[in-house]
Nucleic acid binder design. Structure first.
Lengths: 80, 80
DNA sequence: CGATATTATACCCTTTAAGGTGTAATTAAC
DNA sequence: GTTAATTACACCTTAAAGGGTATAATATCG
């Protein structure tokens, strides 16, 4: 089984954006229609989550998941 | 339920890369350790797939899924 | 054009992910 | 320092995803 990594690109992105917007995990779950347990597991770096649920969350921040060359991952992640 | 879209960024990416490499769906399933049925559903644009399975596939092409600004999706997708 | 290869669709079964809820641990506010 | 708020962890239930397999449809090759 893949390992959890709370510093992966998605977990870091969601955690940072949520804190920048001054939302709690409960706030963000309500705003996006997702379960609180899902959001918490995602921020803890759970690898095996549903793609559409992640995109539902990222859409709230004007983002979506796309294939990115692995060496460019960090740069793309910093992209505004 | 989200709709299937065989032209979404991931389906298009996987289909194009697979054809460029002259693999069949069976070839790619064997090479990546994924099920043939999963690969077929992914290329048909199934939205609710497992994130780690998608990354397992994209890793074969040196890519991974990262949050991308929605307006930049096309450009990022074309990035080598 | 016919045969073969490949892709798309469908079904069954087992395992698993997400929602909801509760509790414990940590952090923040006063 | 205490309390409240927030986050992390755990359990139960239900619905669904992926592996495997079979069949239908489409594309490719000679």
């Amino acid at each position: 089984m893949k390992e959890w990594d709370r510093n992966n690109a998605i977990a870091t992105f969601v955690r940072n954006r949520r804190k920048e917007a001054n939302y709690t995990q409960i706030d963000l779950a309500d705003l996006t229609g997702l379960g609180l347990r899902f959001l918490r597991e995602l921020e803890q770096g759970k690898p095996n989550v549903m793609l559409d649920k992640v995109n539902q969350l990222l859409q709230f921040f004007g983002h979506t998941l796309t294939p990115t060359p692995i060496r460019n991952e960090t740069r793309n992640h910093l992209d505004q």
